[in-house]
């Protein structure tokens, strides 16, 4: 396969032609915030809208996950306009995220906290209003606690459960603001055909899917 050389943030990088810009950057130690990117997925979801970068010659910032690298490409991951879009997208996600880091077992390893640090933004938006859905927490499963209010709809759990493992318990349902990760007919996880591999917990970037033993009692008693 042919290789191309490109510049990301001033760093000269060689990559295979046709490779995805986001993964090329990440593999070369250049971080671009992302939630919905899945390496093995052939077509990017492009739904979280966090991986905006500026590419020379392009009028508007573009999402890195939908760009393929080309020869001589000059990429700036720290451009003002790209970061401002990423910040806005993150702010929107957080305004609808059930923010409770103090009690969340994910705190410390949560990707949202990591992204906030990278973008230099607060977790709680000052400008936007809280738009919460207050959905019931599913604690029926012996190993998993699922809190849809903390879900950012990145789709990693669905891809793992459905495409990667072929189980297909989880899927997206509903439209617009009501969109959520759920089971068929919203049945509790315990009675779904979940085979308890709990791979979904491992890929969840937030505290939406957590192992039961790690979950503090406060969360379970709420539901």
């Amino acid at each position: 396969m042919r290789t191309v050389s490109l510049t990301i943030d001033g760093q000269q990088i060689t990559a295979r032609e046709g490779d995805n810009l986001l993964w090329v950057a990440l593999d070369n130690g250049i971080y671009i915030p992302n939630l919905c990117a899945i390496r093995d997925k052939s077509e990017p979801m492009a739904s979280c809208r966090l991986c905006f970068v500026e590419v020379e010659g392009k009028e508007q910032p573009v999402t890195a996950c939908t760009e393929t690298v080309t020869e001589g490409m000059i990429v700036n991951t720290r451009g003002t306009r790209a970061l401002s879009l990423a910040r806005r997208s993150f702010e929107l996600l957080m305004a609808s995220h059930s923010l409770d880091c103090a009690h969340c077992p994910k705190s410390g390893s949560c990707e949202l906290q990591h992204i906030a640090r990278y973008l230099g933004t607060r977790l709680k938006s000052k400008q936007l209003r809280e738009l919460r859905r207050d959905l019931p927490i599913d604690d029926s499963h012996p190993q998993i606690i699922y809190d849809p209010n903390k879900c950012v709809l990145c789709g990693r759990c669905i891809w793992t459960c459905r495409e990667h493992l072929g189980v297909g318990v989880l899927g997206f349902a509903h439209r617009g603001f009501q969109r959520m990760v759920t089971t068929f007919e919203d049945e509790p996880l315990a009675i779904s055909k979940c085979d308890r591999c709990v791979e979904c917990i491992g890929v969840c970037p937030t505290g939406a899917l957590l192992p039961r033993n790690e979950t503090k009692t406060r969360v379970t008693s709420e539901s």
Binding site: C48, L93, L131, R179
Partner: peptide, 21 residues
Amino acid sequence: TQRESCGKCTFCRLGTKQMLA
């Protein structure tokens, strides 16, 4: 548009909702 948004991407799903509010 907010009601007809498919909900896939953040800007349309949550951005239009914020604007509507």
